[in-house]
Design a protein around this nucleic acid. Structure first.
Lengths: 338, 338
DNA sequence: TCTGGCACTCGCGTGCGAAGAGTGCCAGAA
DNA sequence: TTCTGGCACTCTTCGCACGCGAGTGCCAGA
């Protein structure tokens, strides 16, 4: 069992280490924080904290640095979420409000998060399947070639080419478009499969092949694997990683290039609030020396997608969590308005 | 005036330095390349090359490394473009052919270029204004709110919200959509402004305000500044930059984050073929120790946009130029098919 | 349970010397 | 005139020893 003062010592170690990037010793601790006890006492506490695995020494005769477990305790018990100041909130709102379309919203969000947290920002596009259909458009490019365009209420647009098995008349096209929209507009994409399955039956035999092809293209587009997109930014902040950084930065950059990895990373966070995954808690090996702070965002109650930042385990957790939470909130508002 | 052998010496220096990443000395040169002369002779040539500014010594008693001017001479006179091998060409084609939409084409191109050249890849989306209009769609989201969707023949889709000054009936909407498309479909986006300027006159007075609003939104979307988008990838390759890399990588990452900088960078290259900008030839300061190899690509004769790579000045120019040229060619084909 | 003291460890910076790579220059050969 | 071998010189790099200082662990006493 850890006493109250030991927790204070851990908190002080985390704060100092995050600030100075250098192992922190007992003397420095007593000087910078008025713990009311002597360095010797702090040393005893540190020894205990080390036994429990919350802090470690890089080598004998150096100060202590927090372990992943130590950061975990800090995040869970010792620190809250630091709320944004009013000017910061205004700045966020102003910055996001100028966005002209969804791509722009996402791009601005990435920039904003990267600037606020001074870390690498990751923003997922709103999920297709969890959005609702605003409109489905079908365009005839040539008699046997269609373009299918899906538009969500969040402003996301997906388009696909469809090669028809047989020529498809303008009248049939208009018919299909109208039927399709009357069935699915305003409904959730996840309900689309069941809403359209009997649609071919409403058409003449000669058109059924094409209708089926269109529908299967539509359904393929909604498959999990395709629907997830994301944008990252602020990679220049990786250079602030630390002294040993050439070794660390490589795998991180590689992981960031793999969208699959990132999507899994964000997907793992089930918590409705801000989720923090520290160091080895991240399944991906290249990210073992990073922490990921993420949160869901959405226009209504439900989360449409996730956003977050990736940074060194040695990061300002309260501030980062505050920034991530605030940005998510405003992005949700912006999407609801559009 | 430089003799033939001196040029050979320069070529050998560039090749060795690119391979080994280490300053190359006179002895090593004579051993690895059979120049038919002794190290002493090579030393004299090197002294001459140094006087002319083609090579330099990092410090006395080290080998020579090429200067920007040296690379420039190498690229212009001493090396050609190394064509891709047949298997490489097949791999490129296979990789690009699986693309499902334009975003996918661009994303795949970026990955491909990054893998082939092992450098940072940059791909610009096909220019809007230089494409032709496939379709313009107008959707009523609410009585006074429209969504404008532009689709190009390269598969690019742009959407914008339009807030109407007055409610706009379904019939007027269909009318506007039909008139708009009959005027601009199949035409180049750059011609759109002049094609639509008298369109409001065809409508009732009460609808003219809305029509004008729609048109001005349309024209704004075509403004140069908005129309350029790009995607980058392969930033993990920056870690292969060199030993001194922490200092170099930072400004490069920062420059890469600034789309404006990159767009200017690509825009500067006027050459119809592969363009190489070496070190200080790049206007942007952060990129002074990098070279940019770029080329235009397009479905027809005209370049729709640019793509290229950013890497250390110490790069394999012939190979990189070959890869960039080949990828551009295949991307052009893919876009022409879609 | 806390505190002051003390011996101990160990990383880090510094200085020095040897080794090695590479150069510039010169005199002689082709 | 051009190339070549030889030689002295310059610097960088590496290994090593040394001292300093930060920080620890432990112990006896308050």
């Amino acid at each position: 069992m850890l006493g109250e003062r030991r927790l204070q010592v851990l908190r002080a170690i985390v704060q100092d280490y995050v600030g100075t990037e250098e192992p922190v010793g007992s003397k420095a601790l007593t000087e910078r924080h008025n713990l009311g006890v002597s360095p010797a006492t702090v040393r005893n506490d540190m020894a205990a904290l080390e036994d429990e695995g919350f802090i470690a020494q890089p080598h004998t005769s150096a100060g202590r640095i927090p372990t992943d477990k130590g950061y975990r305790l800090f995040v869970d018990k010792l620190a809250g979420v630091k709320p944004m100041t009013a000017p910061e909130r205004r700045a966020i709102q102003n910055f996001l409000e100028g966005a002209v379309d969804l791509d722009d919203v996402v791009a601005r969000t990435v920039r904003l998060l990267a600037q606020l947290t001074r870390q690498v920002a990751v923003v997922q596009y709103p999920s297709l399947t969890r959005s609702t259909v605003r409109h489905v458009e079908l365009l005839a490019l040539s008699p046997a070639r269609l373009m299918l365009v899906l538009i969500t209420d969040t402003g996301r647009v997906e388009q696909r080419m469809v090669d028809c098995p047989a020529p498809f008349g303008e009248a049939s096209l208009a018919d299909l478009r109208a039927r399709l929209n009357s069935r699915v507009a305003g409904r959730r994409f996840s309900d689309v499969p069941s809403l359209v399955e009997d649609l071919p039956e409403a058409f003449e035999a000669e058109d059924r092949g094409t209708v089926s092809t269109v529908l299967s293209t539509l359904l393929e587009t909604l498959v999990e694997e395709n629907e997830e997109r994301l944008m990252i930014g602020g990679t220049a902040n990786l250079t602030r990683f630390g002294h040993d950084f050439p070794l660390v930065i490589r795998p991180v950059l590689e992981a960031l290039e793999e969208q699959v990895v990132l999507l899994k990373l964000l997907g793992e966070a089930k918590d409705p609030g801000v989720t923090v995954r520290i160091g080895h808690e991240n399944a991906h090996e290249g990210l073992n020396s990073t922490s990921v702070v993420s949160v869901g965002y959405g226009s209504g109650g439900e989360a449409l997608a996730k956003l977050g930042v990736v940074g060194p385990t040695r990061m300002d957790y309260p501030g980062t969590m505050g920034a991530v939470r605030a940005v998510a909130r405003y992005v949700g508002q912006i999407l609801a308005e559009s």
